[in-house]
Amino acid sequence: MQIRNTKEIYQQLKEARTKILIPLILLTITSYFSFIWVIAFNPNFFSILIFDTNISIGIFLGFLLILLIFLITLIYVYFANKILEPLINKIKKK
């Protein structure tokens, strides 16, 4: 009975991890490669100034991307601590 239980929790852990990981990995890769893509194919887009300022879209989005990267790590750790860690601890106790 106990062995089956561990298996079930482990299965749950794997599924939960996949659900958290896939969107975050996609977000990381697409955001970065879109940035690189614009630089390679349409660099002029990044030189457009935003609103009435002297700050270009490229610099604005670059700063935003740095923020997003940090945010991705925060989101993962939030879900890992909330969802994955309790499951891992259950398995460890067995």
Partner: peptide, 16 residues
């Protein structure tokens, strides 16, 4: 900025 972001983008991959 291109270099900075490139050096930073590896970190989510390491974490995830």
């Amino acid at each position: 900025l291109i270099y900075s972001i490139g050096f930073l983008i590896g970190w989510p991959i390491i974490l995830l």
